[in-house]
């Protein structure tokens, strides 16, 4: 499976309506800074788990709060 990229995560945010096409994306900024609320984050992580075949436990969910951190975490999990 290919590594998960920032663009993959951004596409899932657009697909789940948490972001719109053309929105400015700050990949290293907290999700909330881009207007992404807690419920949107639930949906994002559900899609990440379904599409990338990884399980993200609650303790990691709390820590992962930027697009780049999520992409790196998923890539690392896939590599194991």
């Amino acid at each position: 499976m290919n590594a998960c990229t920032n663009e993959d995560i951004i596409q899932l945010l657009i697909e789940s309506d948490a972001l719109a096409e053309g929105d400015e994306v700050l990949v290293d900024a907290p999700l909330k800074q881009m207007g992404i609320q807690s419920l949107d984050k639930f949906n994002l992580f559900l899609l990440v788990e379904e599409r990338h075949g990884v399980q993200i436990p609650d303790e990691d969910f709390e820590k992962l709060d930027t697009v780049s951190a999520i992409a790196a975490y998923v890539s690392e999990k896939q590599a194991v």
Binding site: S38, L39, F42, N43, L46, D58, F61
Partner: peptide
């Protein structure tokens, strides 16, 4: 309520 777990359960 574990909001994330309940949401994921419902959505799936």
């Amino acid at each position: 309520m574990n909001g994330r777990a309940v949401f994921t359960f419902c959505a799936q």
